[in-house]
Design a protein around this nucleic acid. Sequence first.
DNA 1: TGCATCACTGTAAACGATTACAGCGCGTCG
DNA 2: CGACGCGCTGTAATCGTTTACAGTGATGCA
Lengths: 329, 329
Amino acid sequence: MRVTLHQVAARAGVSIATASRALNGLSVSAPARERVRQAVAELGYVANEAARALRSDRTLTMGLLFFDLRNNLGIELIDALSETLEAEGYSLLVASARADRRRYDVLMRRFLERRVDALFCINPRGEGEALPLYREAGTPVIALFAAGSAFAGLPLIAPSFSASAGMLTADLVALGHRHVAIVLPEVKSPPLLAVAEALKAAGVAVSTIEPSEAGGMSEAAARIGRLTPRATAIVAAHVHARGLLAAGVRAPEQLSVVVIGEVGVDARNRKRGLASLVIDPQRMGKAAAGAMLTWLAGTRPPDRIAVQAATWEPRSSLGAAPLRAETAA
Amino acid sequence: MRVTLHQVAARAGVSIATASRALNGLSVSAPARERVRQAVAELGYVANEAARALRSDRTLTMGLLFFDLRNNLGIELIDALSETLEAEGYSLLVASARADRRRYDVLMRRFLERRVDALFCINPRGEGEALPLYREAGTPVIALFAAGSAFAGLPLIAPSFSASAGMLTADLVALGHRHVAIVLPEVKSPPLLAVAEALKAAGVAVSTIEPSEAGGMSEAAARIGRLTPRATAIVAAHVHARGLLAAGVRAPEQLSVVVIGEVGVDARNRKRGLASLVIDPQRMGKAAAGAMLTWLAGTRPPDRIAVQAATWEPRSSLGAAPLRAETAA
DNA sequence: TGCATCACTGTAAACGATTACAGCGCGTCG
DNA sequence: CGACGCGCTGTAATCGTTTACAGTGATGCA
């Protein structure tokens, strides 16, 4: 860039210090402030953040580092975090390690060189060599979605589904369901597990069904029919629930159906009247951003913040359990 | 950060200049270089990029500005761009205007203050006041997906589907299809339009069908049956194609089906043998990153770069047109 | 009138790196 | 033998801000 504060000051007929103060809203006489404003406009002055950063030791930049960016969560997190932080004047440096631990470390280090004011680690695996450097530098780091002890000693923002799973369970119980089937794929999603747990805790019998890739959902439907006592409701991830319905299962007459929604869009489920647990990673982002800002303001957040990351939306695919089931219980 | 080059130099018993040279691989005697390396390791020195940026007028940072981040494209672009640029030492500042033109301008300006070495504008709308400042600063800006003249004078990277649509058409024609139906929703996607155009150019009759939100795909299937001459193939977006199949349409016996894939994942279509046009925004990202790097190296890219952003995957949902249709043509 | 107070302003020293320039010792070559 | 080139090194200027400090003139108050 060519035009510097120096030139602005010269044009406004004031010293460089006064010009700086005018721009930062410190005490400056009205006419001087106005002349500076004018000079800035005429010259098209754009502050040099690098110089500012060097002098004041703040870059107004935060790092957002993903272990792997490529899943629907990524977008939502970036969006939620940036919305909050942007309002405070921060920008986000984003990078993805593409599931490579070594690269994760390299990128963490790179962000440190860029002197980020803070760092968010999404799904970090293990500590790596860069983390101690952050500690030394006093740069706050918050982990999101980290497995257990991965980043010991750092505040961890973790999703929790207990509240929504509890409400879901309460509703099913109130409708008389005492036996519920759950479609549980190989890779078990946290919300599904949370629901299974909540149901069991409430004394509901839970049968798990594997979605056989080959047979598909119509076979699964048949298997549900063979369960004894017969399940009166089923909980399944988005895809599997759709498959069941496509296979001809009628809800709620035949079976009450609960969908564990995909991230973000719930519109289609709403339109079809499908009761669903809506996962909303935006809340994770907002919570993380908020925690970081308060940290920068002086108070370190607690070591673990559980964020209710889902909403329970009971809808018409839910019905009372048939009497037959009642007696079975 | 506390430990500076100064301290490294002191510890290594050399001057600050030598230390700097050692780190940047300039000519330094072997023993001195080694002592610096040692000192860096012992002190945990991390270079201050802000100072480097101030002095050398390069931030090794690029801006990536979205008009709206929230669609599957976003993730893919970030991933593709960062993969290429990260290897060159660049980091990405990411922001989304959340569909607000004024905010777009504010963010562009903010990136300019951060002294990004280059800027990618995704889906920009109109010029705004910040763009001229980039021009003045000599900071390269590349637009992606910009509508027509939005960013006049800037290199524009635009997706093109002509090649894949052409191959698709050739295959259909070779199979004897002379009348093809296209499910065309209100918001027309570029690849769908490209396919329609290619088909027409090849002399194929094209009937467009609106996906009636209420009636759904079974109604659409019925409508196709009523077309005269009867369409022998259908082209539809992911969701609609799935709907058709769920409604009982058998491919390819009854109808040849071509899916215009959703961004990214084609796995399910492959498994089901659905012929599809696979959209791959990664290529846009790679092309943009490459163009930018060559620009920074000195040669400005052309004003318009068309990137083939899809691959044609013919599969078993394609069959020869029945003779009856042959005669109709 | 004299002195403290006040609002504002300018001078100059940082911040932490890069790099032009000059100096040094030493080997080579005419 | 002197000039030169070469490889390495240190000194110091520089990038564009922020900010401590001191100075200015005007004002209030005794």
